[in-house]
Simulated scan of single mutants.
Amino acid sequence: MKETPVDGADRIRGGPAAAARDPQLFEAFYRRHVDAVTRFVARRVDDPHTAADLTAEIFLAVLDSAHTYRPRLGSETAWLYGIARNVVSSERRRVAREAERDLRFSGRRLLEADDIARLEDNLDAESPGRRVLAALARLPEGERAVMELIAVDQLTVTEAAAVLGIRQVTARVRLHRARKALRDEADSQVAETDARAVSSGVPGARTPNASPLYAKRGEA
């Protein structure tokens, strides 16, 4: 068997373009990245059949998009996440257009019990990621997309910018705004909890003036 040429921890020599032309390289590419792609999908869906279908669609899309990979913009994993994000978004739009829920499952291939068990394990493992994504749902789309890729999918700002097709400075501004919005929301929730506790006469409850949230600039 021909040895698979590998360049670095995340990259097969020649990249996705070479893998798309060579079935053996593509198999190696698939095996190298399938777990990361499956986890990406599992953070966004909670059905094993859907996760299996979307993972397969992502690697099929690689064959058409292989020529778009640019090593200088980030790792193969980050590039795959960009494809995966588009595939997942397309699926969500498709589901939203369906009049009957059952149509989502029509014509899908049957999964073996082992496949379902493996995917369910991934779905369970990634449930914290899905909760984080749900918490980000109130952010504007652009800020949410950057925050998802960096905070949940663990990409760098450079890679997130490449995935979204925006400048790095734009990604940094959106990340800053997203973090500020989340901090403000958390502060607001704490303040509301304090106010309810004070009004109900809970022993030991903080008064607004006693809370660090209400401290003057330079205090606390």
Rank of each mutant, 00 (worst) to 15 (best):
I12G: 06
F26K: 04
A215Y: 11
V169D: 11
T38V: 12
A51K: 09
S65W: 05
M1Y: 05
R183Y: 11
R32G: 05
S211P: 15
A20R: 01
V41L: 07
A117D: 12
E120W: 05
R217T: 13
T38S: 14
A171E: 01
V152C: 05
A36S: 15
A28H: 12
L80C: 09
I166W: 03
S188Y: 11
R131V: 10
P71D: 02
F40V: 11
L175I: 00
R109D: 07
K2Y: 06
Q154T: 02
F40L: 13
G15Y: 03
R144W: 08
E112P: 00
G107I: 01
A135H: 09
Y214L: 00
D10T: 04
D102G: 15
A52C: 03
V37T: 11
A151Q: 07
V87C: 05
D184P: 09
G107F: 02
E27Q: 08
R131I: 11
S106I: 08
S75L: 03
E159A: 05
D115S: 14
D153L: 01
D114V: 10
V202K: 01
E159N: 02
G8A: 03
A51M: 10
V62P: 15
E76Q: 12
T156W: 06
H49E: 05
P208W: 00
V152I: 07
A61T: 11
A186F: 11
R31H: 09
P5T: 05
L103P: 08
L25S: 07
R92C: 08
R196A: 12
A61H: 08
D22R: 01
